[in-house]
Design a protein around this nucleic acid. Structure first.
Lengths: 143, 143
DNA sequence: CCTGAAAATAGAACCGC
DNA sequence: GCGGTTCTATTTTCAGG
């Protein structure tokens, strides 16, 4: 894991669809050398995946919210979240509440429906997202 | 925005580095047709970006936490977050706390340092991530 | 890590529906 | 508008050094 790898990661983090040859040009390296480095970074799972980032609002999901919840049956709740199309992320956390989940859903109605389902598992608190000042950053890498 | 677009989005959401021709094969469409649809989806910003998803832990960022905070000077705080390398995400939220931020940082020490900096802006509460049962899902699209 | 040739792909122009 | 075809330039892959 050297400077070159960090450069590659920084570029792919910003533009996952760049061609290998253009990436190579940017860092003065030939295609095969870049390909091999990327292969190793994928193998070590430094790179986990390549994803297109979509706009939920333009796909009928107007509401984003974070729900924290205090549950007993952790496995059951995790399974419920895995199956729920409204759950985008789930994290087990320290503190009074033991899960924080990110919900992306159609409307306030569907959010409320979801929250009610959740309350079967424990006490919840909902924080609706009003705005997101800037797009999620990737992992900051200094090369 | 039809079934075909949804199929394309689903595929790119899962594998942003797939070749246009393979994508075309998967949905029985020629390359140029796929390219044109993707171009329009990018233009409409249904597709916002293509990103490589990296493992923070494998890049020296062992700790993830969510911090909620009650601030008065919103702009100042947002600028602070924009500049901080520890802030991965920021959301303005409803409720007692008005911001929720996702922090990805080296260690508990650096998290505590960050939290102290934050407390200049207002009352904070930190929820450290213990585990993430499953990787963030994309936007669920039924085609 | 580079080179070089073969295979695959992407992009542009154009056609028909 | 929509997608298909063809042709060319570029890219990717794989062998070998």
């Amino acid at each position: 894991m050297d400077q070159t790898d960090l450069k590659i990661l920084n570029i792919l983090q910003d533009n996952a669809r760049i061609s290998i040859s253009e990436l190579g040009r940017m860092i003065n390296m030939t295609g095969p050398a870049v390909t091999e480095r990327i292969r190793k970074l994928e193998e070590k799972e430094v790179i986990r995946s390549y994803r297109a980032v979509l706009s939920p609002e333009k796909l009928g999901k107007a509401i984003t919210a974070f729900v924290i919840i205090q549950v007993n049956r952790c496995d059951l709740f995790t399974d419920f979240c895995r199956r729920s199309p409204d759950v985008a992320e789930i994290h087990q956390i320290s503190g009074q509440f033991n899960f924080l989940i990110k919900v992306v859903t159609e409307s306030m109605q569907s959010l409320e429906r979801f929250r009610r389902e959740c309350s079967e598992f424990g006490f919840t608190q909902t924080m609706t997202v009003l705005s997101t000042p800037f797009d999620p950053k990737g992992v900051p890498l200094d090369d």
